[in-house]
């Protein structure tokens, strides 16, 4: 008990908790108007005209916006899983090893999608994929998934790498000394230690894929609008609170998921 209290004091940094809470406040405060205007009677995202559920009804009836939202989540889920697995592998290959030929090139290639503005990759992919689409006559989601996976890799890679960089080899060496096969040592020792990095990386990859506009706009085939490209199309005309409604629903789902995970993990520890 005494020990716990002591460690609590040790961890305290003056002002940090305040800054952190301010940061959380700043993260959520701008969302308040978004949620509020989703209940707006008027067809406007900035002018309050009374309470109504009409935009939820509109979103419910609007096949386009609904399927776009679902498409966004599906693509983001698949792409972020692929990106995270691949990024984890590359991270293992580029950290805590003796320098080798090609290491810098791998590092540069992994980070390259960060550096090139989206429009450039988008136009290049448009030309490349158009050739493949014409040759194979396949217009499915694979193009979107592979494009998203590629630009999500660095976002998953950097947190995982940061985690790995400071990890000691001692435990893995110990496991090897105890005649664990490399795979077992990895599964039982390395992977659990990497997990927070992997988790952080996967979440970043997911939200980055969810956000993408420009690459999706150029890669998508007929009928493959995601929520961001759907919104981009509306930009010139004026965005309706329908978008607020659907975003509020997405926020609701994510909150629900967090709550679920919270209770599940509590059950496990209890």
């Amino acid at each position: 008990m005494i020990l716990r209290r002591r460690s609590f004091v040790i961890k305290r940094m003056p002002g940090f908790t305040l800054l952190a809470l301010a940061c959380f406040f700043a993260l959520y405060m701008p969302l308040a108007p978004l949620v509020v205007y989703s209940f707006n009677e008027g067809n406007n995202i900035a002018l309050w005209e009374g309470f109504s559920l009409r935009w939820y009804q509109a979103a419910w009836e609007n096949q386009l916006v609904q399927s776009a939202a679902i498409r966004s989540i599906v693509v983001a889920t698949i792409a972020s899983i692929i990106a995270t697995v691949l990024a984890t592998m590359v991270a293992l290959a580029t950290t805590r090893t003796r320098p080798y030929r090609g290491q810098t090139i791998i590092y540069a290639m992994v980070n390259q999608p960060l550096v090139v503005p989206e429009i450039v990759t988008a136009v290049a992919l448009l030309i490349l994929f158009a050739l493949i689409k014409q040759a194979t006559n396949y217009h499915g989601y694979a193009y979107l998934v592979i494009a998203h996976s590629a630009f999500c890799i660095p976002f998953a890679y950097l947190p995982i790498r940061a985690r790995l960089e400071g990890m000691d080899r001692v435990l893995e060496t110990a496991a090897a000394d105890l005649y664990a096969t490399p795979w077992r040592a990895f599964k039982r020792v390395t992977l659990p230690l990497m997990l927070p990095g992997i988790f952080a990386g996967a979440m970043l990859a997911f939200v980055i894929s969810l956000d993408d506009v420009v690459i999706t706009e150029f890669v998508k085939s007929a009928g493959q609008d995601t929520l961001p490209t759907y919104m981009l199309g509306q930009l010139r005309r004026s965005i309706t609170p329908e978008i607020n409604a659907i975003s509020t629903v997405l926020l609701g789902i994510s909150v629900l998921m967090v709550t679920l995970i919270f209770f599940l993990s509590r059950k496990k520890t209890a």
Binding site: L27, L31, P33, L34, I45, L210, D211, M231, L251, V258
Partner: peptide, 25 residues
């Protein structure tokens, strides 16, 4: 992990939405 999720929840709305949210406030 819950706190981490709390950081990413606002990002379930897309970039354009978040940018408009800032514009609004």
């Amino acid at each position: 992990n819950i706190w981490l999720f709390l950081v990413t929840i606002p990002f379930w709305t897309n970039l354009l939405i978040r940018t408009f949210a800032i514009l609004e406030i």
